[in-house]
């Protein structure tokens, strides 16, 4: 979901995705490269992201991943589920505090 979320903003290459997740979560979340690439390739196979070779700002060839329509739908589904989950957990936590 995190990857999909990052790609929702703009197409990114693998390294960029890792950096984005780290900065966006203020270094709390660190994506292991050992999981990142398998995940990307799996998403690609499932048709949620598509990949193309493009040049970066400093003219290096890199594989850019972008969200497909199916990926956007999937992101929406996962966000909904996450919201549901987190609000439930939230409720549980605050309820427990009260």
């Amino acid at each position: 979901m995190l990857i999909l979320r990052v790609l929702y903003l703009r197409p990114q290459h693998g390294y960029g995705i890792a950096q984005s997740i780290r900065t966006a979560s203020s270094d709390v979340l660190q994506v292991e490269t050992g999981s990142l690439y398998p995940a990307l390739h799996r998403l690609e196979k499932q048709g949620w992201v598509k990949a193309e070779w493009k040049n970066t700002e400093n003219n290096q060839r890199a594989k850019f991943y972008s969200l497909t329509a199916a990926g956007k739908k999937q992101l929406k589904r996962e966000e909904d589920r996450w919201n549901l989950m987190s609000s439930a957990i939230q409720g549980l936590m605050s309820g427990g505090n009260a």
Binding site: H13, Y15, T33, K63
Partner: peptide
């Protein structure tokens, strides 16, 4: 080959 290049790129960026 593409996978190798992808990883190499990651390494270069880092």
């Amino acid at each position: 080959d593409e996978l190798d290049e992808e990883i190499r790129f990651h390494m270069n960026m880092a």
